[in-house]
Simulated assay, not measured.
Amino acid sequence: MAYSRALIKISGEALMGEKPYGIDPEIVTSIAKDVSKVVESGTQLAIVVGGGNIFRGLKGSAAGMDRATADYVGMLATVMNAITLQDGLERAGVETRVQTAIEMQQIAEPYIRRRAIRHLEKGRVVVFGGGCGNPFFTTDTTAALRAAEINADVIFKATKVDGVYDRDPKKFPDAIKYKELTFQEVLTREIAVMDSTAIALCKDNKIPIVVFNLFEAENINKAVAGEEIGSLITNSR
């Protein structure tokens, strides 16, 4: 495999599949099968999961909720997704631990960096829930932060599209796909890959980002193997 330790960011919307809300069990099963192959290959894998399929803090804030309160509700939604993903992974035979930034010891471990790294070294998948524990930060930023903390070689952003485009390919058939980009280009052009804080963190810590389609069979395995799929974002090209 091209990477010895990797972090995957999976959005809450991706877990919905074609459903309007909630979690599609078939998607969870598909992710679990792909992840099991990656773990069998010897790559250490961590996952950060979003919560937009259940509750999104920004939408709650736009509807009149206090922003900090809305973000805390969103963090709880990510924990629900993390536990569901853990169940799917363990049914696929993958030993998994959930760590949360907000302590809830009856259902998950609190996030402790050294413990997370130890789990990875033992071949366990670590799923990070609860965001980074603070409002006003996205799960994209959490992914960049956790990747830096655990010394991940790469961040894989698993989405519903096969890479980064100059505009929405679902609305514009002539949208141009970027094979490679630099972090500076993403920031300067305000390309919607991750929020600017996440991009800046990856830039400063020299952590490449690979954006690819989660719904194509074995794409997680292909990405970790270093195959040229999706779009690559690095410090230089």
Rank of each mutant, 00 (worst) to 15 (best):
Y3Q: 00
S4Y: 06
R5G: 05
A6E: 08
A6D: 03
G12Y: 11
E13V: 02
M16I: 10
P20F: 03
P20R: 04
P20N: 08
I23W: 08
V28T: 07
I31L: 09
I31P: 11
A32D: 05
D34R: 02
D34E: 12
V35Q: 05
K37V: 05
V38R: 01
V38W: 04
V38S: 00
V39W: 09
V39S: 08
T43Y: 04
T43C: 04
Q44R: 05
I47D: 02
G57I: 12
G57W: 14
L58T: 15
G60A: 04
S61E: 07
S61R: 08
A62K: 15
A63D: 11
R67Q: 14
A68F: 14
D71K: 01
M75L: 06
M75V: 07
T78D: 02
L85I: 02
L85P: 06
L85R: 05
D87I: 01
L89C: 01
G93A: 12
R97W: 13
V98I: 11
V98Q: 02
A101Y: 11
Q105N: 02
Q105R: 12
I107A: 03
R114A: 03
R115H: 13
R115L: 08
A116H: 12
R118F: 09
R118E: 13
R118K: 13
V125D: 00
V127C: 05
G130S: 07
G131K: 10
N134T: 02
P135K: 00
F136L: 04
T139C: 11
D140H: 13
D140M: 07
T141D: 06
A147V: 02
F156P: 12
V161F: 14
V164H: 07
D168S: 12
P169I: 00
K170W: 08
K171S: 07
D174Q: 12
L181W: 15
T182E: 10
E185K: 15
L187E: 14
M194L: 11
A198R: 09
A198V: 05
I199E: 03
I199Q: 10
D204M: 10
I209C: 06
I209P: 06
V211R: 13
F215I: 10
F215D: 05
E216G: 09
E218F: 00
E218W: 08
E218I: 06
N221P: 08
V224Y: 15
G226K: 13
E227I: 13
S231I: 11
L232A: 09
S236A: 14
